[in-house]
Computed example of a mutant assay.
Amino acid sequence: MSQDPLVVTTHASWLQRLGGALAGMAVGVILVLGGLTLLFGNEGRAVRAAQTLDEGGRLATSASPDRIDPAQEGRPIHVVGMAQAAGPLSDESTGLRISGLRLVRKVELYQWVETVRTETRTRLGGGEETVATYDYRLEWSSLPVDSDGFKQPQGHVNPEPILKDQDFSTPQIRLGRRRLGPEAAAGLPATETVVLLAGDAQEAERRLGRKVVVSGDALYVGADPALPAVGDARIRYAAAPWGPISVIAGQQGADLVPYATRHGRLYEVRAGRLDAETMLQDAKAANQVLTWLVRLGGAVAIILGLALILNPAKVAADVFPPAGAIVGFGVVALAFIFGAILSALTIATAWLVVRPLLSVVVLTLGALVALGIWRFKAARGTRSEPRVVGTQ
C-alpha cells in the first residue's frame, strides 16, 4: 500500500553551496585521518591474529571431553564432544522454551517506510535546485523505522515495535566433564528453524496482550495475517541445537577458557566434529577476509575524504556548469588515484612496523626488479645502430 508522493523543491545559492563545501572539508579531513588509522591498525591486528593461531597450532594438544588431565592445565587443548546446555533456553517475552545452545529471535514489522528520490540541477551562476520526491509505502521490514524523522509524518505514524531482535545463549555448555561459558554459545550458528505450535501462540498472546496465531514458521502478532495492519509483527526463531562441537581453548580445571598467547587470545568454537588443523585454517581464512574488508573500508573512507576536501574546487567552477562538470570529474579521479596511493603507502608503512623482515625482502626484490628494468632499457637506448656502407 502506498500513497501519493510528496514533492519538495529546494534552492541553494552558489555562496551557500560554497560555504557547505568548505565546511565539508573538515569532515573530509576526519575521514582521511580515520581511514589512515583504520588501515594502519588493521595490519597489526591481522598479524597478531595470525601469530596467535600459529602459536596455538604449535602448542595445542588433543584432550578428552570426559577426562581432565592435570598435565594439560594452563595449556591450549583441542576437544571434540557432544555439547549440552545446563538447562532450557527461553524467551521470557513470548514464553517460548527450547532445548538448545543458542536461540535467536527475528522480528519483522509491518510499518510505513519512506523512500527518497532526488534530482539535482546546477544553474548558471553556480546555484543549485534539488527536487526531492518522498514516497510512503507499507512494508514488512526487519528494522524498526522511526516515523518521527519522516518528511511528512502525518498519516504515516509507526507505533513502538512490540518486540525487537534478540539473541539468547545458554550461560553454560557442558562438554562431557568440561564447561564452556556463554561466549562459546554466542559464536555457534543458529541454523535450525524452530517449529512453532498452537500452544506457543497461546502463551505469547497471554504475555504480549495481543492476538497471536501461528502463520507458517512465524508467530503472527495481529488480528489477521491475510490483512496486516500497521504495528503487526512476525516473530521467527532459529536455534543452535545440542550436538557435536569442536573447541580449541585453554584448560583451567574443568573450564575451557580463552588461552593467552604472546600475541592475543585463542578461543575457537565450531559446530561439528573438526580436527584442530581444519579449525585453525578456517580461522586464518576468516582473518584474511576480515583484513581485506577493513582495507577496503579504510581506502573508501580516504577516497571519500579526499573528494570532500577537493569539492570546493568543483563548486567554485559550477558558476559555469560545463566547467563544473569537468572539474568534478577531475576531483573524483584525483581522489581515487591519491586515495589508492595513500592507502597503499599506509599499508606498506604498517608492514615495516609489524612485518619488518618480510617488508625488507619485498622492498629489496622490488628494487632489484626496478633496477633490472632500468638497466635493460638503458642498454637498449644506448645500443649503436650498425653503419651501412654502400657504393656510390
Rank of each mutant, 00 (worst) to 15 (best):
L22Y: 10
V7R: 01
G35P: 00
A23G: 15
G24Y: 09
D54Q: 14
L39W: 01
A63K: 02
T61G: 11
G19P: 03
R45T: 14
A26Y: 10
N42L: 04
S64Q: 05
R45Q: 11
I68K: 03
S13C: 09
R17L: 10
A12M: 13
A46F: 04
D69Q: 09
H11A: 12
A50C: 04
I68E: 06
G34I: 00
A60T: 08
L15T: 13
Q16Y: 07
V29S: 11
L59E: 13
W14V: 07
V27S: 13
R58Y: 10
V47S: 06
A21R: 02
L38Y: 05
G34A: 03
S64R: 00
H11C: 08
D66R: 09
G57C: 08
L18M: 15
H11N: 12
R67G: 07
D66V: 09
I68H: 05
A60C: 13
A49W: 00
L31T: 02
D66K: 12
R45I: 05
V7D: 03
A50Q: 01
T10D: 14
V8I: 15
V8C: 06
G35M: 01
Q16G: 14
L31A: 14
G41P: 05
A23I: 11
F40R: 04
L22F: 15
L31C: 04
T37D: 05
D69S: 13
D4Y: 05
W14D: 06
A60H: 02
I68Y: 04
G28W: 03
P70S: 10
Q51W: 00
A12H: 13
A23S: 12
Q51S: 01
A60V: 13
S62I: 07
